[in-house]
Write a protein that binds this DNA or RNA. Sequence first.
DNA 1: TCCAAACCCTTGGAAGTCCAAGTATATTGT
DNA 2: ACAATATACTTGGACTTCCAAGGGTTTGGA
Lengths: 168, 168
Amino acid sequence: MLNSPLPRDPIAQAREQWVAHGWASEANAMAAITAVMRTASIFLQRADAILKPHGLTFARFEVLALLGFSKRGSLPMSHASELLQVHATSLTNSVDRLEATGLVQRVAHPTDGRTRLLELTAQGLEVLDAARTDLNAQLFAQSDLEAADATDLFEILSRFRRASGDFL
Amino acid sequence: MLNSPLPRDPIAQAREQWVAHGWASEANAMAAITAVMRTASIFLQRADAILKPHGLTFARFEVLALLGFSKRGSLPMSHASELLQVHATSLTNSVDRLEATGLVQRVAHPTDGRTRLLELTAQGLEVLDAARTDLNAQLFAQSDLEAADATDLFEILSRFRRASGDFL
DNA sequence: TCCAAACCCTTGGAAGTCCAAGTATATTGT
DNA sequence: ACAATATACTTGGACTTCCAAGGGTTTGGA
């Protein structure tokens, strides 16, 4: 995947270029946003590598984890896609694969013919538990984020996400 | 794209579930990492929407911007993919599209037959300037990140990226 | 010298994301 | 009651990312 570490942070370099070209007032936001994207891609790669032996990706893990927390054990697709904050089409894609491997079932809604309910299967629950254990041990417990940075990061991003209309 | 704001932050909810199930020590990293991914996806959608009228995506914009800053005006693919921190195959994909629309050219390296140099065309330079102006005005200058948060965010992510081996 | 190892780039395939459009079911307003 | 509107989900297409594998070119050690 990644080569050896670069001698100089390329995002910091881009930031300097921004300043040098007269866009100083946008430089910090540019650097922060670019760094967020890069960081997300690093974490996604790590998560997917950890989940691969479980036959999962991070996207599919999130679906399982959400179902595992739902009181009833079942959730309409629409509700799940809202909570996961992905498009309905992305969820359709993930669920197709989860259903094909027997981790999740689509069941008819008792009263609304449009709605399909997602349910974890017994096997889905097993895979979820094993995958979550691994993610906790190998990703979240060794995230390369210092404790204070993790909380600060979450707070900054919460302010941003609220300002951007993610939630109230 | 996005529905109406949710009444409650779903990542904060997941964090509570993590604590409630006995994974309290991993909860903050889980929440921070999930928030980074969500934030990246929000910014990527915004950037792509702004760049669409220019016939660009953020991935392709980054290639143009990098070439625009290079002293020579040309850069080997390998060097570009290192600086952009994406796989060589991803760059091949972007450059194929940039070349197809005439914004970039692949030229032979004078002495190394393996290497292909990327060059901005005149049209590529024009598109870059226009796209960058729009991104600065519509994304970076109105990022929903407060000034202090943008700098803190960049610093936290720089520490993380260094610790993760992104750069020295 | 010359063959093996390293390097640069591309192809093909799997997966994710989104959007636009389509189908089917519910709800609403007249 | 019934047509118009809204909701729920799926399909198809464009794009990105990665990985695994291949083809060419260069370099370096025996």
